[in-house]
Structures are given as C-alpha cells and as structure tokens.
Design a protein around this nucleic acid. Structure first.
Lengths: 239, 239
DNA sequence: CGTGCTCTTGACAGTAGTCAAGATGAGTGG
DNA sequence: CCACTCATCTTGACTACTGTCAAGAGCACG
C-alpha cells in the first residue's frame, strides 16, 4: 500500500527492514476522496497525517478577493501533511484535485517512530525538508521566472517527481489538472497559462492537453526552464 | 549565547532543563561574518548547521540572467540552515546581509540529539516546518499579492519575528537592508520597491528609511497586507 | 572633497491581467 | 441517438501593473 512512499524515500536513503515495517504499520484508515474536496482547512486541529496513495492533491492559501495560490502539488507517495505532526494545525488548506485514495496516519504512531527509530525519524524529517526545498524553487519561479520558464519548470518538476514513483511512460505522463489549477500553481491567470501552453506547444517543446503531458524535447524544456533536479535531492545517502 | 533561539522555541513549546542544556552544548565555534559574504553555496557538502546570533542573513537562489530571489530572511535566533542536517547539502546559497555573528553546530551533535532527545528532536523538526510555513506565505505574496500588499506583509512578518526575540521597540525596529535586498525578497525591482515604500509612507502607514522601520498604523498595515500571524505558530504547545 | 553606493524620480516599454465571446467536448436526459 | 448543459479551453481587444533605462540627489567614507 505504501509502496510509492517507499520508492520516494528509498531514492534518498536506504531504509532497514525494521524501519519499512514500522512505516507499513503506521497507516490507520484508507479513505477515498472525491475530486475538488477540501479535506483539511487551515486552522483545523489535526491528530493524523495524510499519505497520498493515488490521485493528485494540493496545498493552497487564498486572499479575500478569492485569488488562490497553490503552494505544492502532491503526487502519489507524498506524505501530504506530514508537517502537521509537529505543527498540530496547518496554515493552509488541502484539497483533492482529482479523485484520490489516501491513508491516514495517526500522529501517535509518528510519535512512536520518533521515540524508537531515530534514523527513520531523520528520513521523515528529510521528507518535510524536501517539501521546503520545492517551496523555495517555486518561490524562485514565482518571483523571477517568466510565465514561459515558470510553466516549463513546473512540467519538468512533475515529470521527475512522477518518474520517481513510476508514473511516467517515456516522456509522457498523465496530469489531470485544468488550466485553472495550473494557473493557481504558477501565480498566473488561466488565460495567460493558456497562451503560454500554446507557445510551448507551437515551439514543439511540450504539449499539455486533455490531462496528458507530452514532452517533445526534454533538453529544450529544461533549458527554457533553467531546470536542474538538484533541489529534489535524488541521491541515496545516510540522512 | 543561544538565548534568542530559546526565546523563539519556547514561544512554541516548553523545553525541559535537560533539553535546554543539550542545546547549549550543541554549538561549536562562534564566528563573525562580514556583510555581503556568502557563507554557504548551493551544493557544498555540509557537516554543521548555522545558528544566527546577531545580524541579518538570507537564503537565496538566482537565475542565469543574474536575477536573485531571496527565499527567507533570517533574524537573530534563527537556525539558518538546520535543514542541512538532513539534506547534507543545500539547494540555495546563504549570505550575510549585515555583519553577523554565528554559532556553528556540528551535525554530529544534532544527530546525538535525535538519538537521545525525541521531544527536542520534534521541536527542531518543528522549527524547519516553521520555515516552510514562512515559505508558503511568501509564495502567496509572490504569486498573488500586489506590490503594495506584498511589501506591507513583509514588514508585518519581520515585525512579529523580531518581536519574539526582543528586537522591536514599540512599533519600530531596525532593519539594515537596502532597497535592493528588499526587492530580492519581494520579487520586485528595486525601483518599484522604492515607489511602493513611498506610497506606504505617504499614506502614513509605515516608513522604511535608513535601516529603520517605523509603523505608524499597525492595524492599517496589517489590513493592507492581509496579514495574520497564524502561519508563525505562536502558541506554546507540545510538539 | 571626491568616490561610490543607495535612493529617487521621470519617461517609456512590455509582460501579464481583464473582459468578453465563441469553440470544444464530455456527460445527461428525453 | 440526439439535443442540451456545463465546464473548460481558446482567442481577441484592451488595460494596467511592474519593469527598464537613465539621470540626478543624498550621503557615508576615505
């Protein structure tokens, strides 16, 4: 059930059999969530964390005028709100962007891990630090990249992250987002995202249509984005 | 020496005497860093973390064209790169924006904390999760707030964060940044920051001159920024 | 009392936003 | 099986916020 989480973590460090089994024992309920449902609201008191098994979720915040910023897109294997374990409540909302399957992990079991498995604790800590690294790269995009580079960068990142958990096929992957969803990730309007996707398509770099991303020229996509995967910490090493 | 760190952590949870003393024993060398010096470069192999005792530091990334995005401004008491403990290398640079005094904490000692002090480990984990929460709020600023709201929000945040460590005087605080530094935090050009500060000053909301921030009307500043301190997690509770 | 950095301002440019209308397409009910 | 509906996508025309370029002022420091 937690195979994708293990793929993600084992790409960054090696877990022992004991640690893997502690992780396997961690989930409580498995729940299906319909598309568009906000499962956690900012400020809610939380006693469990959410592991995404299948589907796409996001974290978002919004302003009074209704404009929304997605701060992270989550793919299967992501521990969507592992950080709620120490924060106890969140500063943002979490919603399903597609129908999702999640596993709920009681904070009590995470606490037991911190008491008994120091190395596994560091690996989980690492996982939240990785989220923060993704946040920083997005800040660079939001603050300094052009709409085109920002969009290209996003598509590169998701390509790598889905690849880690085995959800790419060559240079193609499924991404059931609307252009509005995309615009909320990218800090743009959906109209401008539409124009930007058109430009990327006409330059034969990448295409995003009907929930499918097809990368025609990965090298050019990465160049347009100034993408390097460094910030995704894809080296197995002791944490 | 680590009093400001303790103020920061004790505002979020209570540390035991043992835990405080473990933290006091953690720092190795104390070092002075001149203004503008980049002390850590992205990719460097790291074996210690940096605790900021005095001065202002920042984390930043840049693009090939030279434009720079600061992803976090650090104030005294901040564990600037605590996350390097699990990441082992960083995805961003760290530099001093003013003359600084730092304490260097060997990762070995942090590792010992994770082996012997589970609760203190969770508190330190919390501290990195707090950085990520600040990242998310900045993403909302960069992606969705106007230049004016974004600038106002930044000044609110720093006001609160400096207040926690006793570095405000009423509604005034010292902030020895240039407008270029500010623009790199805010994802704007320095010219536009200049105009935005002028607008805030002329509306008698806040003034930023000569390294001094004077808030004339905190309520209006917070309203202009849509600022609430929720994301700074200012409640002492078991982590 | 220069030198250089920072701040300030004006004129102009351009990227991205706004508004609006029509196209496309999947799902629904008659 | 065929309208019909609603969400999403697309495009054009226009707007505006922020960026660019440039020059001059202010000021600390040697």
């Amino acid at each position: 059930m937690i195979e994708k989480l293990l793929m993600k973590l084992n790409a960054r460090d090696m877990l022992s059999a004991d640690e893997e089994s502690a992780l396997r024992d961690a989930p409580g309920a498995v729940v299906d969530v319909p598309s568009d449902k906000t499962i956690i609201r900012a400020g809610d008191e939380l006693s469990q964390s959410t592991l995404l098994l299948d589907g796409l979720m996001c974290r978002y915040k919004d302003l009074r005028n209704g404009s929304r910023q997605i701060s992270e897109l989550h793919v299967p294997g992501d521990f969507v709100d592992l950080h709620s374990f120490t924060l106890k409540r969140l500063d943002h909302n979490i919603m399903a962007l597609t129908p999702c399957r999640i596993a709920q992990v009681p904070h009590e079991r995470l606490k037991a891990i911190t008491e008994n498995f120091p190395h596994l604790t560091r690996v989980l800590w690492f996982a939240t630090n990785l989220d923060a690294a993704i946040h920083r790269e997005w800040m660079l995009s939001l603050g300094r990249r052009t709409a085109l580079a920002r969009t290209a960068h996003f598509l590169c990142e998701i390509y790598v992250r889905l690849g880690i958990v085995g959800l790419t096929e060559g240079t193609t992957y499924l991404l059931a987002l609307t252009q509005v969803d995309l615009s909320e990730c990218l800090g743009l309007t959906s109209v401008h995202v539409n124009r930007t996707l058109k430009a990327l398509r006409e330059q034969e770099i990448v295409e995003f249509r009907g929930g499918v991303v097809t990368i025609f020229d990965l090298a050019r996509l990465e160049r347009a984005a100034e993408f390097t995967g460094d910030y995704l910490y894809l080296e197995p090493r002791p944490r």
